[in-house]
């Protein structure tokens, strides 16, 4: 390895460590926020106790708040931010469209329809629940969009057009179900869920999200060079030895699985997948070996803080986290656009 390459590798390792530290600190700090007072020291004690490294006396109520409520919630937020960010980065590169995000493939509106059908009609009863309905809806919508794209020729623009069509269709179905069949309580519950919420996530949600997001990140990192090859379009990618159609299918399915899982846990959290990849590209450049981990870490930190703030800003009424991401995300996005302004 040349010295320049080694220096780059070292710098990357340093940045990655800093990023992981930032996520850890954000999670710890977010846990201290809220109506019940918990200090960073309390957080540390509770964590050490549960990992089995210490046996420090802590009040039961603090232990419950930290371990049962705020920690799983913060970790889920981190996973959701990281996962949606990565999906956005991959889709933007793969579909050669800076506007692509995890929801461009109709996934979020499919999830909404699934959740509403369960919420309003109670199909499947408690066994499936809102989350299960959302997952099934997301997968069905994605399948329909891909089928539509295939039938119309299969190029990148076709995928996006099919995604727009799918999104509109499932949004209409969601609205139809709500207006025709739901009473106001059901409507409120479903609307809140649609806007994104991490209320009441449990440890099994954490485990599910963590597995999917970590696995997805590893796979995307493995495909980093192949994703780089798409910078100049399909034809150049093919001439660089990429099996374009196969890779696109693999990565579309991967992003669909990640997004469907996250949406089924946290609802349709918008904007993270669209904006954060642009922020990461602005800061760390377009090479995916760096872009993918950077987007994941930025996404995790961003989401943990937005969730914490939405939780406490209007307490006791929580703000849907999707509203928070957009309120913070839009100004950030505008800032990036202005900084990137260039002579045509």
């Amino acid at each position: 390895m040349s010295s320049a390459a080694r220096r780059r590798g070292l710098l990357g390792l340093l940045l990655a460590t800093a990023g992981v530290a930032a996520v850890a600190f954000s999670v710890a700090a977010a846990i201290t926020l809220g109506p019940a007072d918990v200090s960073l020291v309390n957080v540390r004690d509770v964590l050490l106790n549960h990992v089995g490294l210490a046996d420090i006396p802590v009040r039961a109520v603090e232990d419950a708040i930290v371990w049962e409520e705020r920690l799983p919630r913060a970790l889920t937020a981190a996973a959701v931010g990281a996962g949606l960010g990565i999906c956005g980065a991959v889709l933007q590169s793969l579909l050669l469209n800076p506007l692509a995000d995890p929801f461009v493939l109709g996934i979020s509106s499919g999830a909404s329809t699934g959740a509403v059908v369960i919420g309003v009609f109670g199909l499947g009863g408690t066994a499936l629940g809102l989350s299960g309905g959302a997952f099934v809806g997301a997968v069905l919508a994605f399948g329909l969009v891909i089928l539509l794209a295939r039938l119309s020729g299969g190029g990148t623009d076709r995928v996006i057009l099919a995604g727009v069509a799918g999104t509109q269709l499932f949004s209409a179905l969601t609205s139809f179900a709500i207006f025709a069949f739901a009473d106001s309580d059901e409507t409120r519950g479903v609307m809140f869920w649609l806007l994104g919420s991490l209320e009441g996530v449990r440890w099994d949600d954490v485990a599910l999200c963590a597995v999917v997001v970590l696995g997805g990140t590893a796979l995307c990192l493995g495909y980093a060079h192949a994703l780089d090859a798409f910078s100049f379009g399909d034809e150049v990618a093919a001439s660089l030895g990429i099996a374009v159609a196969r890779l696109r299918t693999v990565l579309l399915v991967l992003t669909a699985v990640i997004t469907a899982t996250l949406v089924s846990v946290a609802g349709a959290v918008g904007f993270v997948g669209l904006v954060l990849p642009h922020a990461a590209r602005f800061l760390f450049g377009p090479r995916h070996a760096r872009l993918v981990p950077a987007t994941a870490l930025i996404g995790a930190v961003f989401m943990v803080w937005v969730d914490a703030v939405s939780r406490v800003a209007f307490q006791p009424t929580p703000l849907p986290v999707g509203v928070g991401t957009a309120l913070v995300g839009v100004p950030a996005f505008v800032l990036i656009l202005l900084r990137r302004k260039r002579v045509p």
């Binding site: 780089d228 090859a229 910078s231 100049f232 150049v236 001439s239 660089l240 030895g241 450049g285 990137r340």
Partner: peptide, 28 residues
């Protein structure tokens, strides 16, 4: 791709990529 390289027409990008990184693509 290890034996045949192509320079096609209209290969453009909107990403902020540096010349060195464009050339690096050839190593994929």
């Amino acid at each position: 791709a290890r034996a045949v390289a192509v320079v096609s027409q209209h290969a453009h990008t909107d990403t902020d990529i540096r010349v060195r990184d464009v050339v690096r693509l050839g190593r994929i």
